[in-house]
């Protein structure tokens, strides 16, 4: 299963490191990353492959949300289809 991770918040040291090390712990593979500063906000998007992960989607979501709180950013994870179905035929 592929998912899109979005991280939005105030820029700080160690956001990418924090997020990606947590993903590694969860056995989630990162397929693509884009990151920019948009209107002064740190904005990162990752395409993830969850097929190797043992935790359920709900558990992964909870772990990442908690990590986001710790890093002071908002982390969302949603299945890829919600974006592809809206923007492509």
């Amino acid at each position: 299963m592929k998912a899109i991770l979005t991280v939005i918040g105030k820029d700080n040291v160690g956001i990418i490191a924090g997020v990606s090390s947590k993903l590694a712990e969860l056995d989630v593979n990162i397929l693509d990353v884009t990151q920019t500063i948009m209107n002064g906000y740190f904005t990162m998007m990752m395409i993830l492959d969850l097929s190797g992960a043992t935790d359920s989607f709900g558990e992964i979501k909870k772990t990442l949300t908690d990590k986001g709180t710790e890093l002071g950013v908002q982390i969302k994870i949603q299945r890829e289809e919600i974006f592809t179905s809206m923007h492509s035929l």
Binding site: T6, M45, F83, M86
Partner: peptide, 11 residues
């Protein structure tokens, strides 16, 4: 998948 499209959906 473009960043702007992802952000549009989220918004």
């Amino acid at each position: 998948m473009e960043t702007s499209q992802i952000l549009e959906t989220i918004r």
